[in-house]
Amino acid sequence: MQMFSEPEPPAESHRDAFLGSGVDRAISRRYGESGAELYGVTPERFHRIVAGVVLRYAADGSESERVELVASLRIEELVLARACAGGNDAAWDAFIPRFRAALHATACRLTRDETAGRELADELNAELYGIPNSDSRRISKLDYYMGRGSLEGWLRTVLTRRHIDRCRTHSGDVSLDEQIDHGASFAQSPPMTAPVGDDRVAIAIAQTLAELSHEERFLLASYYLDQRTLADIGRQTGVHESTVSRKLDRLAGTLRKRVRRRLQSAGVHPRRCDELLREIDVRDIDVDVAANLKQERSAGTF
């Protein structure tokens, strides 16, 4: 029933997995700052843990990219999470005071109810501690943490995924995984209705959107489709809301200019171009943005 499914935890790489000598040295350099010794994590196991992360995210990357990846890891929190998943008491003694209260507060913010928040946090806490599988082996959710972002941020994202799934379940919506299980994935793509207004405008908008970068399309989708606030978008992208505002203003101007140029290239008289663009309400542009964004779901897998 879950909409979002976590990937399988990567098996820790073997020591002899070839990552490149530079990567090995980068991993060895980070052992000292990881605090692995506090939790009884040997250098060999530490290497396997980090190598597993490298193989997961940069299996096809260059050696320099791998070294950069190793350098960017939250290594202390990664070791702590893996030590907790391994049942190390000292690690849990360090984990609980650092993250438990924050987890509960986040759950309360999400659910807006202390009882529901506590229930949500307790569920995740149980999974973090580990649930025995069919082999009576305890599997901890912390095995999924890869150290790419902060551990607190990762816990918050996991909690949010769980909360969204619960909301969908309680509201009667069908999760996407369930739809796929029922064979919906074999359905044909639904036919698109005709764009509103002049076809030439719609075509020009579609072509212009196709030229935009991923970031620009994300901004358009977040602002016009999802109607997120500037502050919200700023939080997601790690920039100030004024920066988002400037980008959106510049983007709107660029869109209008490019669409006008395309219309003129298609043989539309400049005066008619102005009339057509004047007729386009912002809401109509939003519809076209939505349509074109949805037609361009060719994001690569990663």
Partner: peptide, 20 residues
């Protein structure tokens, strides 16, 4: 960015997680 531009679910998740 490419995925988020095309996936409303992940945009919603990201917005909720950062908002919390």
């Amino acid at each position: 960015f490419a995925h988020l531009a095309a996936c409303a679910d992940c945009r919603e998740l990201l917005s909720a997680a950062t908002g919390a």
